[in-house]
Design a protein around this nucleic acid. Structure first.
Lengths: 134, 134
DNA sequence: TATGGGGGTTCCAGTCGCGGGAAGGTCAAG
DNA sequence: CTTGACCTTCCCGCGACTGGAACCCCCATA
């Protein structure tokens, strides 16, 4: 298989696939003409990577996950650890976004959004922090 | 005020402040010795930027927001538009993260996390997509 | 007067995960 | 033989900084 075929079948852009080879996530063979030659197992790995990335795992997590997948002697605890860490990171990010969202939503609702210049959004952003006098 | 002072008072790293000058968000004056010399108004703009960034606005949004803030003839509708667009983006991102979170959480709970190699997380990632035969 | 330390300055490189585009080689069809 | 669809490598750019090197400035102290 050439790169275009695996791109279509894995759903990953060819650029991404080349990049994954660059950073050593996959090691496709080469044809005589210099083209990358992918086996079914490469495609499988790429699909694995695509799904891991879709779940938000970093490239380094993906590297570890692929290694664990290929390691018959792995312990599921290792995999779970990575997933739990990532889950926590996601939770943190969601919390942060929800906090922003709450503030922003309040401000948006407080703003008339008409032709006049008065704007609670700008006023909030411009707000001096409470000045602590010594 | 030197950069260290504004850094302390605005809560922004000196590096960030220099970067903001680089990209034209602020235009501090210079002392004879070449040091940046910040006025209270610069500090105020930096604090504004800090709060806008904390709400997740992009630098380009911040540039526009500062311009609107300084424009007496602005219409609050312009500000609200930016905020609403940003709010939608946040909502999209939250939804995406929650979808990841849901999948990940299911997988984490399905995984024993012990010394055995069997792992539903890896199995899910390795899963072949339903093959559509023609 | 030397020196030490804590400011400041510029510039360059790196982060993360690719995407765009140039310049060129390869291959099958018409 | 040419066209067009592939493929290759290479380098630059994104966003919003962050780290570090190499250097300058200023003040206090020995």
């Amino acid at each position: 298989m050439n790169i275009g075929d695996v791109a279509r079948r894995s759903g990953l852009p060819a650029k991404t696939i080349r990049y994954y080879e660059d950073i050593g996530l996959i090691r496709p063979q080469r044809s005589e003409n210099g083209y990358r030659s992918f086996r079914e197992s490469d495609l499988h790995t790429l699909a694995f990577l695509g799904r891991a990335r879709a779940l938000g795992f970093t490239i380094e997590d993906c590297r570890t996950l692929v290694a664990l997948y290929e390691d018959e002697g792995r312990e599921s605890a290792q995999v779970k650890q990575i997933a739990e860490d990532h889950l926590r990171q996601i939770d943190d990010k969601i919390a942060q976004l929800q906090s922003m969202r709450a503030t922003l939503d309040k401000l948006v609702h407080a703003c008339a959004g008409d032709h006049r210049p008065d704007c609670p959004i700008l006023e909030d952003l411009a707000q001096e922090p409470p000045h602590t006098d010594p």
